[in-house]
């Protein structure tokens, strides 16, 4: 099916996005819709929704914020540190007025050694658009890996 002008605009913005260094798609050549559909399917198969994931990420971020930049230990073996940078970042989605702060959450699962990081914009992109980013994007979150860490 031919891409609509809106889809083409979105594709271009996410691939060559001027908002962040390197864009949101990495080396992933799949259309945005396919990336979103595949990840959403994985999330549903694991029994979660994008909203639940975003909510949990937000909870972990909020716990981490209490450390004012130092590491906070959560009960479940997770260690969280927040880089709370000044400034705001707009959503790359056309016509989406949302602005996220440039806060970055770093999570270490001390049991497995798995490390994850996400920015506030990642939370918004998951909640509002089901977008976990393309393979190779430095902020790509693999849904099954993300779920195994944040819901442990």
């Amino acid at each position: 099916m031919k891409e609509s002008p809106q889809q083409k605009k979105l594709e271009d913005i996410l691939r060559y996005c001027p908002l962040v260094s390197g864009g949101f798609m990495g080396e992933d050549l799949r259309p945005v819709k396919e990336i979103i559909d595949t990840d959403t399917h994985t999330v549903e198969q694991l029994g979660y929704t994008n909203e639940q994931i975003a909510e949990r990420m937000e909870y972990i971020r909020n716990e981490g914020l209490k450390g004012l930049g130092s590491v906070v230990k959560l009960n479940n073996g997770l260690e969280v540190r927040i880089d709370d940078n000044r400034g705001l970042l707009p959503s790359p989605w056309p016509d989406d007025p949302h602005r996220s702060s440039k806060t970055i959450t770093f999570v270490l699962d001390t049991d497995t050694g798995n490390e994850l990081r996400w920015s506030d914009l990642s939370i918004h992109l998951i909640r509002a658009h089901g977008f976990y980013q393309g393979h190779g994007s430095p902020f790509r979150l693999n849904p099954s890996e993300l779920i195994s860490v944040i819901f442990k």
Binding site: V20, G22, D83, N85, K102
Partner: peptide
């Protein structure tokens, strides 16, 4: 200046 991961 502090490095921000992937900051422009």
């Amino acid at each position: 200046i502090r490095l921000v991961p992937n900051g422009i």
